[in-house]
Design a protein around this nucleic acid. Sequence first.
DNA 1: CATCAATATGAAAACGTTTTCAATTTGATT
DNA 2: AATCAAATTGAAAACGTTTTCATATTGATG
Lengths: 333, 333
Amino acid sequence: MDKQTVTIYDVAREADVSMATVSRVVNGNPNVKPATRKKVLDVIERLDYRPNAVARGLASKKTTTVGVIIPDVTNVYFSALARGIDDIAMMYKYNIILTNSDENGRKEVQVLNTLMAKQVDGIVFMGNDISEELRKEFERAKTPIVLAGCVDEKGDMPSVNIDYAAAVEEAVKNLIDRGNQRVAFISGSLDHPINRDYRLKGYKQALKKAGIRYDDKLVFETDYTYKAGQLLQPALQSVNATAAIVGDDELAAGVMNGVTDAGLSVPDDFEIITSNDTKLTEMVRPKMSSITQPLYDIGAVAMRLLTKLMNNEQVDEKTILLPYGLMKRDSTN
Amino acid sequence: MDKQTVTIYDVAREADVSMATVSRVVNGNPNVKPATRKKVLDVIERLDYRPNAVARGLASKKTTTVGVIIPDVTNVYFSALARGIDDIAMMYKYNIILTNSDENGRKEVQVLNTLMAKQVDGIVFMGNDISEELRKEFERAKTPIVLAGCVDEKGDMPSVNIDYAAAVEEAVKNLIDRGNQRVAFISGSLDHPINRDYRLKGYKQALKKAGIRYDDKLVFETDYTYKAGQLLQPALQSVNATAAIVGDDELAAGVMNGVTDAGLSVPDDFEIITSNDTKLTEMVRPKMSSITQPLYDIGAVAMRLLTKLMNNEQVDEKTILLPYGLMKRDSTN
DNA sequence: CATCAATATGAAAACGTTTTCAATTTGATT
DNA sequence: AATCAAATTGAAAACGTTTTCATATTGATG
């Protein structure tokens, strides 16, 4: 009934060697005579011995597990990053402990502590904001942490992103160039640095270069949800917006459907550019033009960076910006 | 530089008690005199002691971690289940190690073994098929395993699903009742029991009850991808299908867009019912009618069931069927 | 064949907890 | 005051590895 586990000690006894030797062959240490290695391997096979990773973790102080804090796996943007993270993690023999934070500061702190208690070798953090409390926890953590799709206000943590300001600026310029004088800026909370310090900045910059006066009535701060976007239509109409740059694809889909459901035509009456280029952009009609981001790669590169940090390898640049683009689809002319 | 960790031993020394007592207060064991408890708690606070979960896992043979095998986090259907799993896991103080399997049998087996090596207390498995090899691994695992959104051919593993056959039958009947004589059946591989033994069976049953002859030209076996669905349009037209029951929402979105992009009208020329009721159904236009499944709940209930199994609690029913429904939206008349 | 360096091995000490069992203290009851 | 049960505590043995250090063993070299 009880799990009759076979331990390294059993193998050692059967193979008539010491535990140390078994450990060596299991870990591929070359200092083992081929004959001994074979003998041990045979016993391992015969006994169906599987090393206990927990014991290993205790002894070696390495768990080959990394923590991943994600706002919500259900969100296409984040799950794309998560996939990149997991693939690279697996490639380097790590597993990931995945936890949803709902962007809730308290939950984030708590989850971080659990992960540290579990002795993860590193952490990838995704989220739109880093609360002061969380930052403090990050600082006292001895474990390497990298941010993915998440900007660090103070700019000192390893991170992987695109240049959101430049991307938004380019997108907005694109809309203005086609004659849109009143371009709405729709994003999540402006408390989030990514929105306040990057996207909005790019937006303003584009207006400025085009000689258009900034009008804060055109700035919409909302939830990152489909529903929230859909409900925005009347407000957009009331400020005479003819186009919008939107910070999230689900949100953008909501905006677009709100607009079309109200009888307007996208892109003829209203143009939309969204920000994350998830597969959702291709599934809605019209297909949404978008800033393109290498989502999978952001996760993958973040994880790769983390492996280097965990290995104490020299890393040249801790703040990585990946290239972005602009993909024209059918929500713009 | 090296992590200067404070251990239970440090606390014991400072508080002038034994490790055993510290362990007791940390674990909320009631057999500790209040005064002692306070003394220990104070030292813990002062030293900022954090129990090492790995050591704890080794000593107690419990890791409070469960493994989750998922085909692809990026898939809305599965990520919805995953979210339910994680929430309940967290509620019961478990963490989840999440690994993508890509439905690749070899990878599944390998991942399962890694999870077992890491001594997870339980496993939730999602996937469309259980290969023979995998089944064998499942059987020799001493760890409880539950299937979520995944039918077990042999019917002996704990699982949480809906009654796919009945749901599909009802959906197809719905289409037939509105006059559709040629209803296409579009799903993923028919090698998967869920398609072959349940959905297709429900489909045939509905035809039979309506007195319509089964025509295998109307059965389309394809990938669960948007693209695959989109490319199906010519084939659908060539067999004069006027409606379809589709096994996956992304796939269905592809089918629908393929049809509309070809100039046909949904639902007037072609009706569609999809199967998973993910949020995607609301985002496309027309919105897709769907079999409704309590996705989040399937994950949640599966995890809850797992907690019972892990605790050796009595469970009355190991094969759980959750209620389904039919949601009429705009892809049907 | 003596010597020395390299190569293989093993003994035992970590790693940081939980848990068992016995010992001690406490408090209530005569 | 004596007794006994219950409540608290501590010592030490797990848990299953890795790793250090010393010891054998081997092979090459002069």
